[in-house]
Amino acid sequence: MTALLRWLHRIEDGLIVAVLLFMILLAVAQIVLRNFFGTSLVWIEPLLQNAVLWIGLLGAMIASRKDEHIRIDVASTLLPEKYHPFLTIGVDLFTAFICGLVAWYSVGFVIEEYEYATPAFAEVPSWLLQAIIPVGFTVMAVRYVLLFLMALVGKRPRMQEPVA
């Protein structure tokens, strides 16, 4: 289980770093092509725009490991620490449910998109680019279920404002 998690973490970290690097390099390549060679490559622009989506979801997945998401935490500031588990249990279940809901419909849609076989651009199939959405929300849903379980045994990380 821990080994599996460690692998997942490594894949996420590696992917997000790779996507960011590609983003910088491709964008600069496009600038050089346009200004010095008077041309541009068709596939760079859509690829860069999809990279934003990937970075968004990968980043969000990583942020869910320790629940470092933006929130308005009125209750945890007002209530003493000993009541916090009651808050997190409800909140984690809700978040897991919402993520699961999105993941469920998202999977369905991406399968359909696969069957429609629409290319997003060039030869890249659009279902592949979209697949990060169901994957991301599934992983987030699982992480919030885990957080919920950890809270039951009193091992959940403190609910906190995001720490980057």
Partner: peptide, 9 residues
């Protein structure tokens, strides 16, 4: 990118 992810989401 974790921070960007939170905002993009």
């Amino acid at each position: 990118m974790i921070m960007v992810g939170g905002i993009l989401l």
